[in-house]
Structure formats: structure tokens, C-alpha cells
Nucleic acid binder design. Structure first.
Length: 827
RNA sequence: GCCGAAGUGGCGGAACUGGCAGACGCGCACGACUCAAAAUCGUGUGUCCGCAAGGACAUGAGGGUUCGACUCCCUCCUUCGGCACCA
């Protein structure tokens, strides 16, 4: 890149203030400070090699909020740390051929330098690094707490396995059947794994979303979808005995549409249903049936769950009884029924379910209408598709004639009374699989003793240290399994030899509680102090990318609720307000090293200074939306800061310059000044409209360039204008603001100053311009006194020569007067 | 398929509660300064007609409500995101 352009001396200013802020400990807070607290948290980063401007948006937004709140008189907590365990760090280390710890700590140093250069300030005395024992000791403690509560358990299950990362994954880490990290196709594998019982909290995680008014609607909806609660009924279908003796227990299905029960003309099991072998025992020609079932089982699950996939099935030769109609209906097995959801058994109502309809048509199964369309009566023989909307029950025994929505409860109650079925709730959410067969994570604090079984590591023995001299290349089993020193353990009960759990925890466990650790980060007696944490949390403002809408944000909410139940914290939700900033796009794609479209902040800062990068980042568009990075836009921000510098520092020069444009007077400048304060304040108090706040400042600078102070009073206003401008800009461009502030003769740090307030009387002009429309089109405008009455205004308008021309002969039907704004003459 | 967000000049984007569409910035053109360039300062810049004054058209498309619609309602199209054979 070219050498720095001639401009204000940002390369002297910026390092000077970084040093000053460090020395003054501008960001260090005291927990017991009497001012109102404000906890501003940005999502802590993975320590990758270097940050790009896309990452920067997060920290710049956060820093602007922090500095603004400081000026509003809050005791602002702004901590930072590193989410340092996990696959990305380990994979990067493997590539470089060095231990993950070395590369991670190296990366952290580089990122800290970058954050400092950006001018983003944190209370570094509170730094947490999740891969260091003084942190993960307490991550392990959290695990033990969940274990005590029965919320951490081990089970053999079909789990998602990434063949490239050589580890199991949580459901949340599988995107479109692929590994979230490496996009390799995920396969299913039967393994014994550790899970967190997040499903036990499904209802509360869902219901408490309503408490999160400060969260973006879309994030709440995404979590709602993910949890996927559906209320319905479990119904027992008695099996018709093939040998006359009815000894088999009934098959249970789950449905959200009990209202359609009278139309259930067959029943379908998932090919994986555990009772299939038993059901088939008495069937004579079962070879063919079993072949068909095995074919369905072999079908790739990701393909099988595609809507387009052809439905396939086979009749089992068995029958069940529809418990309401007492009819004998055939029992089928079909590929469209999933074992993972509900009971793996579905009552099929072809007339009112698209999938059942398609299946029934293919295999010529009976279709019976039981919900009629009130607008257009249905006929089973002529139906082209299932009728899935509400309607009136027909052919439904005692329930005929009832509206379908209403009938759901009535039928369910009837079933409960007669022990046919019971109301129940199903969730899409699965328990959180937390074991990883990889090295770079916190060891799961569990011991196995041949005599005493599975035992938690006693709290006093924490941390279970992650050994450093390990051959850690992924092999599919945890490298800790064969590490002798690590495995050398004693059973806490019988003192005999015990083995350690070799798996490590998912990195997302580390980040479920880091925001608690920031309060008392060096406490080696406990994870956090309940009193302090209860004072400082929930986080007032959380800021981060929307990619964590489900994963991190759901897991953190879960752990918070567990800690609440344990009585160690007094709040149910960790983050009161959430702001999700948009991505930065370059050349049509998300900025990423692999795509080769990253813009490095280091070079930009060298060329233009950090304030320019910050200002452009905030100005480029609404912060919650994606934005396209344009190098030329950076120049614009840089030019603006030059204008600010000149108007503030080199005032005399401007005073002496020849007036070329239209000059503005005292009154207009005063008006603009207060209007700008109002606009910037409202933009920051609202949903962080930095882009319009910056543009308001630009407008004000433009107007200052038209001001020619001619008197002492004028010069005072000019000075006041400049000082206010600098205060308003300080959260966005802290270095230049500090520098101008001190050059204007202030010795106190600008962030210890009060945020300016506006005077509404200055916004009240005696004369205002009114827009005049004829038939809704602007035809003229008038300057009128502020306190003119509507009558007077109307009369004035009708006398106006231009308006007369437009009215010309037509009758005036009505005159609409909107005070202080507009008059519309309707002809 | 369901849910959500968005669609405005050459570009990024503004527009309060329904009240001057295009603020602010980029780009472009012209002028001032300069021997010249850069930087800076100024002027102009939606489209069409017009020398101009001015007028017509214009916020994804089409309807509607209203004195008045980027904004509200209906139908549809496109892009992005989430969920999805979930019973």
C-alpha cells in the first residue's frame, strides 16, 4: 500500500492515546463503584491468526457503546477474553506443526495488539482464556454440577460423526447434513457419549424467550424453531392378535391432529422401530417384508428425510385397532416415518395429511374424509390432495359437527378418560452431545473404577489437567486414552486404580459461563461470587454475530437456568439485551481467509489511522445488516476526519478564508448544534443507529464550514459547537476526539466528561417553512411565523399567487392543514 | 412447504407517528487555488421533455384505502436467513 496521505497526524495521535488510556486505566472498574452499573459484553473470539475488518465491526460497535455509556455516567464493565479451546485452534496448530497451546497463546498476543490498535478498550485485568487451567478448572466444576443434578449422563446412541474432524458432534453443529466446521458429510455412528440433558429445559428455554424483549425477533424465532415444541396426544392402538390371543401391548403413536383420528385408515412404523422383529415373528411369508425393511433402513438418512424422496413402504401382514372406530386397520412400515421423532409410529390419515395422502394413493389404501371444508364439501374419491385446514368434523361418532380446532381438546379428554391416550408434548430439540474425541478441550472430570463404577472427580481434585506432551493428531479416539500419566488415577472411593474419561468437552461448554467469570476472574476458590454476579448480571448489552443465534446463545441460557436452579445465581436469563451485527461482505462473499477476500485492518490503520477504520465501519450501513466493504468509502471517512481536524484545530485559517458558499448565521448554527445533539443521542439510545448518527455529525460539520463568526458571541458559539461536536464523535473516533479535546485546553479525559444535552428552545424557530400542496402535489412553500393559527395559515395559502394559478377556476373542496408542516388544497 | 428479514439514483444508504423521496457518504462533471499535480474549498448530479421558468414520471410488480402512501391493506415476483417427510 502507498504511504500515508498528507493529513492530520493520526500516526502520532493514536499511539499516544493508547498509552495514556493504559496508564490512566480508563477501562478498569471497581466492582463496588456507586454509579449505576452497565455490563457491555462482546462475544469473545476464537484465537485465529489475525482479525479482519469483518471481525472488527463487532468490537468497534461494542467499544462505541462502552464509551458512550461511560459518558452517560455509568460504571461500565467491558471485559475481553478468548474462546481458546476447540477444533479451529487445534487444526491450525496441526497445520503449523506446533502444540495448540503455543499457537493459541501466540495468536492471542497478536489479536490483543490488533484490538489495542483499533482503540477498543477493555479491562484487561479481567481477561479470561478458556484453555488455561485456572479457567477450565471451573468449566469442569460446571460439568460436576450438572452431573450431580442428573443433567450430565453417558449413553450409547447413534451420534453425528465427522469423518474428517474424527469426532462426534452436537446436533447444532450439523448444518445441512455437514460438519459445521469443515463441511464434510456427517455420518451416523453408534458410540457411548456424554450428553447434557438440555431437553429437560426445553419448555423453559422456549417460554422464557418471551422475557427477552431486548433480543432481535429473528433470533428468538430461530430458537423457537430449533426447540420445536408441538403439543399433541399419544394414542394407543391395540394390536390385533394373529393367533387369536391378544397378549401384545399396544402400539403408541404421537399426533398433533387427534381431531382426525376417525380418519386413520392405516398405521405406519419407522423401519427402525424396535418392536418390528417381535411383530413379524408370527408372520408367515416375512422374508420379502424383511428385505423391504432392510432396504429402507439402508437408505441414507439425509436423503430419506428429503421431501422429494419417493415414499416407500411395505405391509407387515399385521393389523391394529383404531381405538375410536374399533376398525381393524393395516400396519405398514414406511421410509417417511422417523424413529428420532415422536414414537416412531404414526397413525395415517390420508384425507388430511399430505404425506399419508401420497402414500395411500401409491399403495391404494382407503381415504376417509373426517374434516369437511365448510366452503366446499370434500369427496374422498375426487380429492387431488389432502385437506389439511381446519373444518367441521364428519363421520366422527359423537364428535361429528364440532369445529376441528375445538374438537382436539374434547377428543383428547375423552381418550384420557377411557385410557386410550394422553396429552403430551414433543420437541425437536435433542440432548446436547458434549464429548469430543479430540485433544484440545477441557477433560471431562469422570473416573471409571472396576469396583465402584463411574464416579465424578471430587471437586478438590480439580482441575483435571490436560497433559501437554501428547501425540494429539485425530485418530477417532481421544488421544488421552493411551496417555499413561493422564490415565494414572485412583478411585476416590476405594482408592484402587481407576481410568479417566479420555474425551474432552465441546468448546461450546467453555463459553456457556465465561461472562460470569469476568466478574471475579482471579478467584481460585470458586467459579464466581454469587453476590457480585447477582449485582452485575444479567449482561446489559450483549453484542455478537447472528451465527451464534442457536448454538452459544441456547447453551448459555441453558446453563444459566441450571445455575439458577442450583440457587447459586438469582437471574434466569444471562443476557438482557442482544445485538446481532451484520456480516461484512467483500466481492459478494462473507470475508474469510479461505475465500481470499479479507481486508486487513493493520494496513488500513497504517494508512489512514484507526479512527478512519472505525468511522467507516460505523458509517457503512445499519449495523444489524450485512454491508459491502468498499475501499473508497474508507477515503470518505478519512476526508471527514480531516475536515473535523481543520475546523477544530485550524479555526483561524477558516475564518480568514474567502466565503464562497452560502454563509450561515448565529441562529442557524445554534439550531443545527442542538438538532445534532438530539439526533446523535436518540440514535445511540435507540437500536444503535451509528450510521445516521455519523451522518448527522457530517451535516453539522458542513454547516460549521459555512459559519463566519464575526463577533465575540459568534466565536463563543463556534467554540461551543466544536467542543460539542468532539464530544458527540468521541465514542466513534476516540483518538482524534481526545486529541482535539486536549488541544482545546481540557486536561480531563474526554470520556470522563458528560454527554451533551440539547436545549429544546434552540430548536424552536420563530419562522418555519410550510409546504403547500394542491391536490397532493407540492406547488409552493411559505415562510410563516411559528405561532400562526390554522385559519390564518389557510387564508395565507389561498392568497398565494402560485397557488391561485394552480387552483384557477376549480372549486376548493377542502383544505388540509397539518400545523408546522404542510397545507394541502384539495380541488 | 412454513416462519422471518429485505427490495429506493451509477454505488453504500436516509426518510419521525401516513406529510417536501433520494439526507449523509462514495463516484462523476465543472469551477477556484496551483507553473502543474495532489490535497483543499466551492457548484452541480434520479429519469424524461425544455434554452429556461417549469412540467411529467419515479421507492420490486399490480391493485386498494387516503386530501396525501417508500410507510397501511390485498395479490404476486425476486434475494437472503432459519426450520422442514417433525406426524
Amino acid at each position: 500500500m502507498e504511504s500515508p496521505i498528507r493529513a492530520y497526524p493520526f500516526n502520532e495521535i493514536e499511539p499516544k492515546w493508547h498509552k495514556r488510556w493504559d496508564e490512566e486505566k480508563l477501562y478498569a472498574i471497581h466492582l463496588k463503584d456507586p454509579r449505576p452499573k452497565y455490563y457491555c459484553l462482546v462475544m469473545f473470539p476464537y484465537p485465529s491468526a489475525a482479525l479482519h475488518v469483518g471481525h472488527g465491526r463487532n468490537y468497534i460497535i461494542g467499544d462505541a457503546v462502552v464509551r458512550y455509556k461511560m459518558m452517560r455516567g455509568f460504571n461500565v464493565l467491558s471485559p475481553m477474553g478468548f474462546d481458546a479451546f476447540g477444533l479451529p485452534a487445534e487444526n491450525a496448530a496441526i497445520k503449523r506443526g506446533i502444540p495448540p497451546k503455543t499457537s493459541t497463546l501466540e495468536n492471542i498476543q497478536n489479536m490483543k495488539r490488533q484490538l489495542r490498535e483499533w482503540g477498543c478498550g477493555y479491562d484487561w485485568s479481567r481477561e479470561v482464556i478458556s484453555c488455561l487451567p485456572d479457567y477450565y478448572k471451573w468449566t469442569q466444576w460446571i460439568f460436576l454440577k450438572l452431573y450431580e443434578k442428573g443433567l450430565a449422563y453417558k449413553k450409547l446412541a447413534a451420534v453425528n460423526w465427522c469423518p474428517s474432524c474424527q469426532t462426534s458432534l452436537a446436533n447444532e453443529q450439523v448444518v445441512d447434513g455437514q460438519c459445521e466446521r469443515c463441511e464434510t458429510k456427517v455420518v451416523s455412528k453408534n458410540l457411548e457419549q456424554w450428553f447434557f440433558k438440555i431437553t429437560a429445559y426445553a419448555d423453559r428455554l422456549l417460554d422464557d424467550l418471551k422475557l427477552l424483549e431486548g433480543w432481535p425477533e429473528r433470533v428468538r424465532i430461530m430458537q423457537e424453531n430449533w426447540i420445536g415444541r408441538s403439543k399433541g396426544v399419544e394414542i394407543d392402538f391395540p394390536i390385533v392378535a394373529s393367533d387369536g390371543k391378544n397378549t401384545e401391548s399396544p402400539l403408541t403413536c404421537f399426533t398433533t391432529r387427534v381431531d382426525t383420528i376417525f380418519g386413520a385408515t392405516y398405521m405406519v412404523l419407522s423401519p427402525e422401530h424396535p418392536r418390528l422383529p417381535e411383530l413379524l415373528r408370527s408372520v408367515s411369508d416375512k422374508a420379502e417384508i424383511e428385505t423391504a425393511i432392510n432396504r429402507m433402513k439402508a437408505q441414507d438418512l439425509t436423503v430419506r428425510t428429503l421431501l422429494e424422496t419417493e415414499k416407500e413402504g411395505v405391509f407387515t401382514g399385521r393389523y391394529v385397532l383404531n381405538p375410536m372406530t374399533k376398525e381393524k386397520i393395516p400396519l405398514w412400515v414406511a421410509n417417511y416415518v422417523l424413529m428420532e421423532y415422536g414414537t416412531g409410529c404414526v397413525m395415517a390419515v390420508p384425507a388430511h395429511d399430505e404425506r399419508d395422502f401420497e402414500f395411500a394413493k401409491k399403495y391404494k389404501l382407503p381415504i376417509r374424509v373426517v374434516i369437511d371444508n365448510p366452503k366446499k364439501p370434500l369427496k374422498a374419491e375426487t380429492m387431488k390432495e389432502a385437506y389439511v385446514d381446519p373444518g367441521i368434523l364428519v363421520g366422527s361418532g359423537a364428535f361429528t359437527g364440532i369445529e376441528s380446532e375445538e374438537s382436539k381438546d374434547k377428543i383428547a379428554d375423552f381418550m384420557e378418560r377411557n385410557k386410550i391416550g394422553r396429552k403430551t408434548t414433543q420437541y425437536r430439540l435433542r440432548d446436547w452431545l458434549i464429548s469430543r474425541q479430540r485433544y484440545w478441550g477441557a477433560p471431562i472430570p469422570i473416573l471409571y473404577c472396576d469396583k465402584c463404577g463411574t464416579l465424578p472427580v471430587p471437586e478438590k481434585d480439580l482441575p483435571v489437567l490436560l497433559p501437554e506432551n501428547v501425540e494429539f493428531k485425530p485418530t477417532g479416539v481421544s488421544p488421552l486414552r493411551d496417555h499413561l500419566a493422564f490415565q494414572k488415577a485412583k478411585c476416590p472411593k476405594c482408592r484402587g486404580n481407576a481410568r479417566r474419561e479420555p474425551d474432552t468437552m465441546d468448546t461450546f461448554v467453555d463459553s456457556t459461563w465465561y461472562f460470569l467469570r469476568y466478574i471475579t476472574p482471579r478467584d481460585d476458590k470458586k467459579a464466581f461470587d454469587s453476590n457480585d454476579v447477582n449485582h452485575w448480571l444479567p449482561v446489559d448489552q450483549y453484542i455478537g454475530g447472528v451465527e451464534h443465534a442457536i448454538l452459544h446463545l441456547l447453551y448459555s441460557r441453558f446453563v444459566t437456568k441450571v445455575l439458577y436452579d442450583l440457587g447459586v445465581i438469582s437471574f434466569k436469563e444471562p443476557f438482557a439485551r442482544l445485538f446481532t451485527q451484520g456480516m461484512i461482505i467483500k466481492d459478494g462473499a462473507k470475508m474469510s481467509k479461505s475465500k481470499g477476500n479479507v481486508v486487513s485492518p493493520d494496513e488500513l490503520i497504517k494508512r489512514y489511522g484507526a479512527d478512519t477504520v472505525r468511522l467507516y465501519t460505523l458509517f457503512m450501513g445499519p449495523p444489524e445488516r450485512d454491508a459491502e466493504w468498499q475501499d473508497q468509502g474508507v477515503e470518505g471517512a478519512f476526508r471527514f476526519l480531516g475536515r473535523v481536524w481543520r475546523v477544530a484545530i485550524q479555526q483561524e485559517k477558516i475564518e480568514n478564508e474567502r466565503i464562497e458558499g452560502e454563509a450561515l448565521g448565529h441562529k442557524e448554527i445554534r439550531f443545527n448544534l442542538h438538532r445534532t445533539i438530539k439526533k446523535v443521542t436518540e440514535d445511540l439510545e435507540g437500536d444503535f443507529h451509528f450510521n445516521t448518527a455519523v451522518s448527522a455529525c457530517m451535516e453539522f460539520v458542513n454547516s460549521l464550514y459555512r459559519f463566519r463568526p464575526s463577533s465575540e458571541v459568534d466565536r463563543n458559539l463556534f467554540r461551543q459547537s466544536v467542543e460539542t461536536l468532539v464530544l458527540l464523535l468521541a465514542p466513534f473516533v476516540p483518538h482524534i476526539a481526545e486529541e482535539i479535546w486536549s488541544r482545546l485546553g481540557h486536561s480531563r479525559d474526554i470520556f470522563k466528561e458528560k454527554w451533551p444535552t440539547y436545549d429544546s428552545s434552540a430548536l424552536q424557530l420563530e419562522e418555519e417553512e410550510i409546504v403547500i400542496q394542491v391536490a397532493g402535489r407540492v406547488r409552493s412553500r411559505l415562510k410563516v411565523p411559528h405561532d400562526i393559527s390554522e385559519k390564518e395559515l389557510e387564508a395565507l395559502v389561498l392568497k398565494d399567487s402560485k397557488i391561485k394559478e394552480w387552483v384557477n377556476g376549480k372549486t376548493v373542496r377542502k383544505v388540509v392543514v397539518i400545523p408546522h408542516r404542510l397545507v394541502n388544497v384539495v380541488v
